[in-house]
Design a protein around this nucleic acid. Structure first.
Lengths: 189, 189
DNA sequence: TGTAGCTATGCAACGAGTTGCACTGCAACC
DNA sequence: GGTTGCAGTGCAACTCGTTGCATAGCTACA
């Protein structure tokens, strides 16, 4: 009970094909929800069966036909209903954090290298978000309605990426034996 | 291919029963990985079949018998191997973020209330982490080995909770019409 | 005396998401 | 002329995790 609603929000913003939705889940929406195209098509089929969305087949030249989905009234009602229902706190799951915790049972230097790699990845993502913000929302104080809400979610991405980067820096500093002799060792067990 | 390794790390720290593991996944480890007891027992069974762990049945009085699991050499080797393998970037999934994005298709004030609720929840969690830190790691600069690594993960929890709280505050401020007329409205579509 | 709660283990059914594959046809590059 | 890439839709099999249920005996409280 999850991707459904992300799709509802996405379709409320703009009627789209499954293909297009899948691409959008790689970008803006994908910030806090991802989905492969297979998953999107599957769920879209179910939503269609439930009457939440309806498709219009559009013929194209030099391209395969496409099915443009849009919300039905039922879908719009469901979206409103879902928005009013309390949201569960989502479980954070991080392989990398588990690796950091277990570093002494392997090679802590290798784990540090891995953290550095993720740090670079998230730094790239942060820059991407910041560029987006500059381009899409040059004057945040003037925003209202769904544009304001989109910007707020982007702000969340930015804040969280910054937090991750700070944390990774702390971890790398602690795991890298430099001037400070924060020795990572074999002596346990 | 995930809970397995969290369990390996957990058992490397201390041999435990499934019941005990499940409880620990509600606490410290559960910070970045959660699991219900059913899931733990299931995976533990598979790991046993794979020869990663081995159980010793311990009889207790006034309590049911318990099976204490410990790592085998194969399990320890797998753990080392996994630590050396690169970790995927984990997909963040947040219902709440999707709700924020879709706020204008329902009642933005209700969404703001929901964000406030989550804010309080995370503030509580942050306090819990900070209390843990004070109690368990009074002198971080002296830490080495697995205690250092445990502390680093706790630091991650603290950093991320702070980030979330900051973000939620930003969202609540933007969604709450106060002196600044950041009107959330019906006028779209 | 009854009920709730803890320790302790586990099965069965389901739902969500991933991985791999299949098919069509155009455009662009080498 | 062949490969790569994009647009477009979809099925099948699988894994991971959740929900609901079952069992059993002890302790503590009302």
């Amino acid at each position: 009970m999850a991707l459904e609603h992300a799709i509802l929000v996405s379709l409320a913003e703009r009627a789209s094909t499954g293909y297009d939705l899948a691409r959008r889940f790689d970008k803006s929406i994908g910030q806090f929800w991802t989905a492969t195209h297979q998953q999107v098509y599957k769920v879209l089929g179910r939503m269609d069966a439930n009457g939440w969305v309806a498709a219009t087949v559009v013929a194209q030249d030099a391209r395969p036909d496409k099915k443009v989905y849009d919300l039905t009234d039922t879908g719009r009602a469901e979206l409103q209903d879902w928005l009013a229902r309390p949201a569960e706190r989502e479980a954070t799951r991080s392989d990398l954090a588990v690796k950091i915790r277990g570093a002494s049972y392997g090679d802590p230097a290798a784990v540090a290298a891995e953290v550095r790699r993720h740090r670079a990845d998230h730094a790239g993502r942060l820059e991407f978000y910041l560029a987006n913000e500059k381009r899409e929302f040059p004057d945040p104080s003037a925003l209202t309605g769904h544009r304001l809400h989109q910007w707020l979610v982007l702000r969340g991405g930015i804040t969280l990426e910054r937090g991750l980067i700070d944390w990774y820096d702390e971890v790398v500093a602690a795991l890298t034996p430099s001037s400070t002799p924060a020795r990572t060792s074999e002596e346990d067990r």
